[in-house]
């Protein structure tokens, strides 16, 4: 830490949720972080905090992260009551400290839902999403020669819509931001990406029924169309995917045998 850095570094107060394990009730703990560069990402700022904590012989704050470039869906965090922080269409790792100013107080909590139990501190178990995917978020394809690329015609607009739905990285911000902890945006995106494409048709009804059942089984809430999910989604998944899920489920209920 040079004096040069200190000159432009920010001093921040962090209120961070600390929780030893799933059974510990947990609570907010206040920390001071000094000398935070505006160039840092939010996660790098937490790295700095952890270095300070470790240097003092304290436990580092546990938080999820992996690619740190907004594509893996691993980072989470509820920052001042907003999933992935204040930016639009960005994950926590894409949030930079230039968003804050010297002297700010920032509250950091884990994503909260019954279906996302806290593992430790800011780390939550989002494997409920994996189980929903395993229930039907796939297409069954027999092995063999690759098909001719243009053998199955798909209108450009349809392909775009399917790709927009497939952009979901499964981070869980939709659940975290939803006042009802509903997973409808996630499931809507996963059902849509296949329902829109010819490859998804053979298992279309089975998928909608199975993924809906898996979603409810995990204990996610009911969608009340408040659209906080869409506003929080780092990949800008549209709520039209929720409408499509409603349609797909209704249709599957009526037509499947």
């Amino acid at each position: 830490m040079t004096t040069n850095n200190e000159a432009k570094g920010m001093n921040l107060t962090l209120k961070i949720w600390r929780q030893k394990d799933a059974r510990d009730p947990g609570g907010l703990v206040e920390y001071k972080v000094e000398n935070v560069s505006p160039e840092m990402s939010f996660l790098e700022m937490l790295d700095v905090l952890n270095e300070q904590l470790v240097a003092k012989g304290q436990d580092a704050v546990a938080f999820d992260h992996d690619c740190r470039e907004g594509i893996c869906g691993m980072c989470s965090l509820m920052i001042d009551g907003q999933a992935h922080g204040p930016d639009k269409a960005a994950t926590t790792c894409q949030l930079h400290m230039r968003r804050y100013k010297d002297g700010d107080t920032i509250t950091v909590e884990p994503f909260r839902a019954k279906a996302f139990p806290v593992v430790r501190d800011l780390v939550v178990d989002r494997s409920a999403f994996d189980r929903i995917q395993q229930a039907g978020g796939f297409v069954s394809v027999n092995t063999g020669n690759a098909r001719d690329a243009n053998g199955v015609l798909i209108p450009h607009e349809t392909a775009e819509k399917a790709m927009d739905a497939a952009a979901c990285i499964g981070c869980g911000a939709c659940v975290a931001a939803c006042p009802n902890a509903s997973a409808m945006l996630f499931v809507g995106a996963k059902v849509s990406q296949y329902a829109l494409l010819p490859q998804g048709q053979p298992e279309r009804e089975k998928r909608a029924l199975a993924m809906r059942a898996a979603m409810d089984e995990e204990g996610f809430g009911h969608c009340t169309n408040e659209y906080e999910c869409e506003a929080a989604c780092p990949k800008e998944i549209k709520v039209s995917n929720i409408a499509r899920l409603n349609r797909e489920y209704l249709r599957a209920t009526l037509v499947s045998e």
Partner: peptide, 23 residues
């Protein structure tokens, strides 16, 4: 069911202004 879906409430919940007074 929605109340049960988030047993531990947020200390701070702000959202991103998608909610309306009605919703």
């Amino acid at each position: 069911a929605n109340m049960a879906a988030r047993p531990v409430a947020y200390q701070v919940y702000k959202g991103k202004d998608a909610r309306t007074p009605g919703s």
